[in-house]
């Protein structure tokens, strides 16, 4: 049984640039750190979600991508509630793991914080997106060497075919020190831009 699925919208954040459906909407100074870049975007868009400032960089990146994506897709709350989320990356939460490790390395200077510790799991990013958008569908987070279009397709198709979700938020959100890369897309039966693992790989590679 083959289900025809479509890409409703996609968002890319890399090199201090944000694009939606292939069209650049924000470009900032390449000298900024990721935190500075993220803060600038947050202020410019006036997101008004103070919890953003408590998030680690991975969650901030996922948060920003999802904000742009949902702004464009403009879904009803009842659709949002059942969205499935399948995200992936290479570095898991290593960026924050290192920061947390620094707080416990030295017995003389020992200052672990639960507020940092909570981000030493990559799927906390899914939690942050779910909390912001009140999403209660199935979710999974995968760690792989590179963008795995096949794995993401299998999970997405399964969620939609089994009627667990009508829409699935997928993507690759990676942060490691100063390097970051976000590619997030929304898949559903509706829409006009055909979805397949080849098409999404092509969009990921060329955008």
């Amino acid at each position: 049984m083959k289900t025809n699925l479509n890409i409703i919208t996609f968002c890319r954040i890399k090199n201090h640039s944000i694009s939606i459906n292939g069209k650049e909407v924000i470009q900032k100074d390449s000298q900024l750190t990721f935190s500075e870049f993220a803060k600038l975007v947050y202020k410019e868009k006036a997101f008004a979600y103070p919890k953003f400032f408590k998030m680690d960089n991975l969650s901030k990146l996922g948060f920003l991508a999802s904000e742009f994506l949902f702004e464009k897709a403009d879904l009803d709350a009842h659709i949002k509630e059942n969205i499935g989320i399948v995200l992936s990356n290479k570095s898991a939460s290593l960026d924050t793991d290192r920061k947390y490790q620094e707080t416990i390395n030295d017995k003389a200077n020992y200052f672990p914080s639960p507020a940092v510790f909570v981000y030493t799991l990559a799927n906390i990013m899914i939690g942050e997106i779910s909390i912001k958008h009140q999403i209660k569908g199935e979710n999974a987070f995968f760690v792989s060497d590179k963008f795995n279009e096949l794995l993401l397709e299998q999970y997405t198709v399964s969620l939609i075919q089994n009627k667990k979700s009508s829409h699935v938020l997928c993507g690759w959100i990676d942060v490691d020190k100063d390097k970051y890369d976000a590619f997030m897309y929304l898949v559903a039966k509706e829409g006009t831009q055909n979805y397949s693992k080849e098409i999404i790989k092509n969009i990921y590679t060329t955008n």
Partner: peptide, 20 residues
């Protein structure tokens, strides 16, 4: 099985996840 979509560790005050 359901999630709260409320907080990383705590249960929501209105028991949303438990209710679901």
């Amino acid at each position: 099985n359901a999630n709260d979509a409320f907080h990383q560790t705590a249960s929501s005050e209105n028991g949303e996840g438990a209710f679901l």
